[in-house]
Write a protein that binds this DNA or RNA. Structure first.
Lengths: 219, 219
DNA sequence: AATAGTTTAAAACTTAAGTTTAAAACATTT
DNA sequence: AAATGTTTTAAACTTAAGTTTTAAACTATT
């Protein structure tokens, strides 16, 4: 049986946090084990000793991030199946946006995730199964309720995509927004205003589509 | 004076196109000069001979992509200021989506751009000035028309962001969509259906917000 | 056709990064 | 406190990739 010393646990944690920073800044491939170890203040062999290799360290970082972000901002906090779908949609959007824009994470979470989206590693399969699919299922239920019985699977899916895309944009496009609008950081109120906008925009859209379904046109 | 042979021009072009593919697939850092040259069917020294180094090749590829995509799909093709804003919005969205999903580019354009968004190089400033800002201005005019006189600059901006984010999502999230929905490629009809959805979704939303403005609430 | 300039080719050079090794330091249990 | 297992360290190993070199092949001009 393996003995685990408390100093080893601290080393592991330090690597995990340094790796989060470095991976977020540079991406999986560009990030170097040397830089991670330097920032963590540990020997270069520590990554291989504690995590096996760079890739398994990366997966551990992703899982760590996921846990922290989803525990802090659950997608259905304070609401249940009995609450009106409008309210549940607002909660969903607000939580998603906070996960993306919360400054405390030093934007580690969105940067890591977004990098994973456009430059997938084998870890993306895990991410889709453990984070995205459950979220999408939850959102589908909400959108189904809003659209009503007659809604096809295709329209539900497209509406869900429209909702999440508006949130994810704030993970992807921050360097562009900085240049285009001059807005660099997002405070508590900015986040609430944006969440309100996305919720209102999406609710109007979904209600409009629900009404259009019956009549067979969208104007 | 330098003589330029026609075979040299062809070599340059072949490198440019192969580099587009490889950079799009792998990203700047992960892409290898060896792979680019192999795919272009040229010697490994050709990149340095024709472009100086890997980075200048990358910039050349970005500029080449921009020209091709915007010439093929202009954002205001066949419409002008006199056309109704609903029609102009549809055209705008359709063009943007085609630039992103056109299989002929082998998704080189969106992948390159998205990489630039997330991991900016000095080339992003050029990109914002020459590509994004004019596009955003055009879209702002359309959205202003739809929202009516009373619309604040803030709400116009947020609506524009909502519209473009829905399109850009198909540039960012394709690996995720492949895993989540099993959809790998997007044919002509897929693109038209998605464009119709985004246009309808956004029109309902903007009209709803315009109506809500007067009454002072969104439901 | 000869020549000067341009392009291509194969191989070697250089550097950087992930990983491994083996010994030393440390911690825990008996 | 000794013994055993765990963790850290410094250095070396290995591979991969960007770049450079030098000569050969090619092209266009005279």
């Amino acid at each position: 049986m393996k003995k685990i010393s408390s100093t080893a646990v601290r080393t592991r944690q330090r690597i995990l946090e340094a790796a989060g920073e470095v991976f977020a800044e540079a991406g999986f491939r560009t990030a170097t084990v040397r830089e991670i170890c330097k920032r963590a203040g540990v020997n270069i062999a520590a990554v291989n000793y504690h995590f096996g290799d760079k890739e398994r360290l990366y997966v551990a970082v992703l899982k760590y991030c996921k846990t922290v972000a989803f525990e802090k901002y659950p997608a259905d906090e304070g609401v249940g199946e009995s609450d009106p779908p409008e309210k549940r949609l607002r909660v969903f959007i607000r939580a998603m946006l906070w996960r993306i824009l919360d400054a405390d994470h030093a934007s580690m979470f969105p940067k890591l995730v977004v990098r994973e989206y456009i430059e997938p590693t084998p870890a993306l399969d895990m991410w889709v199964d453990e984070a995205i699919r459950p979220m999408f299922q939850l959102l589908s239920n909400i959108v189904e309720s809003l659209l009503g019985k007659g809604a096809s699977e295709a329209i539900v899916r497209m509406c869900c995509t429209s909702v999440v895309s508006q949130c994810l944009h704030f993970a992807y496009a921050r360097p562009v927004m900085k240049r285009l609008f001059g807005q660099e950081s997002f405070g508590k109120w900015d986040i609430e205003i944006i969440a309100d906008h996305i919720a209102a925009f999406s609710l109007h859209a979904i209600r409009g589509l629900a009404a259009g379904q019956e009549k067979g046109g969208t104007g």
